[in-house]
């Protein structure tokens, strides 16, 4: 299909009796930032290893940049970049030495290496620091340098495996601004993460659970699983004490303590005014109830609960960008 850079069709991988990836189907378009979200053990890494041509599928198929992962692994390796939190840079080499090393490993030589290394230094914000040891760089710089190194051979697709663990929010935002620029210039970015706030920056998000794809859509579409007005924030004095009162009300599906407030999921939207009255009747006041947007965590938790009872989220079957 035109513009599709990564495609998986009923992709499956078993290890003995254990199915790590179970009939997963999706397609990622050129220039898309695609989030692959799931907890440890959900099947994220196994999927990536198959997509990079490192692990053969048990059944189903996948292609990257038009090449079948089962038969054309060599071509694929030249067309993907890979970066993880733990991987890729040598602490006791300088910035420049690292880039030359990786350039060589990716089959670049001569002027091309120097040219791409200069590009990587520019996107990392490391101009004038090419002779610094990597170990002396702050985390945020190291991270952007690792990304630059993974892109030296200009792959159309880059896989980022939990890329921003442990860096501070400012560095993280810079990293994501960089991701966005890359995507805008046509690089497809495939990111795995178990952090919801990171996933919020992706164009589309795939939710993985126990080897299966249980949801796939844009963030706003995923959030529409909760009709507008069905997630509310309740402000009251002594909210902790009010929690059991809210929980006992009919029509309240779930309630949780959020600092000075409570977040509640209502069975039907538009019950806010009613909720307020009923709480005041029960001696909780002053009460203010307002609708809030569900978090991606709300969506994910609901998708997992749904999957375990046999209903995924709408959109899970399709998977086209």
């Amino acid at each position: 299909m035109n513009g599709i850079v990564v495609e998986a069709n009923e992709l499956t991988r078993s290890f003995g009796d254990f199915t790590a990836v179970d009939r997963v189907t999706f397609a990622v378009a050129r220039g898309e930032v695609f989030g692959f979200l799931g907890s440890n053990g959900a099947g994220k890494t196994t999927t990536i290893r198959m997509l990079c041509g490192l692990l053969a599928p048990t059944s189903g198929s996948a292609s990257v940049a038009g090449f079948d992962v089962a038969t054309r692994a060599v071509e694929i390796k030249r067309r993907v970049g890979y970066m993880s939190q733990k991987f890729s840079l040598y602490d006791d080499l300088t910035v420049w030495e690292n880039l030359r090393f990786w350039g060589g490993a990716y089959g670049l030589f001569g002027k091309r290496i120097a040219e791409r290394a200069r590009w990587a230094i520019a996107i990392s914000g490391l101009e004038g620091r090419r002779d610094a040891l990597v170990r002396d760089l702050p985390g945020g710089y190291r991270q952007r340098l690792a990304l630059g190194a993974a892109l030296l051979h200009e792959p159309p697709v880059v896989f980022l495996d939990e890329p921003t663990g442990g860096v501070d929010p400012a560095a993280r935002r810079r990293f994501w601004d960089l991701i966005d620029e890359l995507a805008a210039s046509g690089t497809t970015v495939f990111v795995t993460t178990h952090y919801m706030d990171e996933a919020e920056r992706c164009h589309r998000v795939a939710l993985m659970h126990a080897g299966r794809l249980i949801g796939l859509d844009t963030i706003p579409a995923l959030k529409r699983v909760f009709p507008e007005g069905s997630v509310v924030e309740i402000s009251c004095s002594r909210c902790a004490k009010a929690l059991p009162v809210v929980e006992a009300l009919p029509g309240v599906v779930e309630v949780a303590l959020f600092g000075d407030t409570l977040h509640a999921v209502l069975e039907r939207p538009g019950e806010q005014a009613d909720l307020r009255t009923r709480l005041m009747e029960r001696g909780v006041e002053p009460v203010e109830v307002r609708a809030i947007a569900p978090s991606l965590e709300d969506v994910f938790v609901r998708a997992i609960t749904g999957a375990e009872s046999g209903h995924g989220l709408a959109g899970a079957a399709g998977g086209r960008p």
């Binding site: 799931g38 929690l243 303590l257 965590e297 938790v301």
Partner: peptide
Amino acid sequence: DPVTRRELWRLLG
């Protein structure tokens, strides 16, 4: 994972 995370916060609450 998100479900456990929510359970933990629920218990802490």
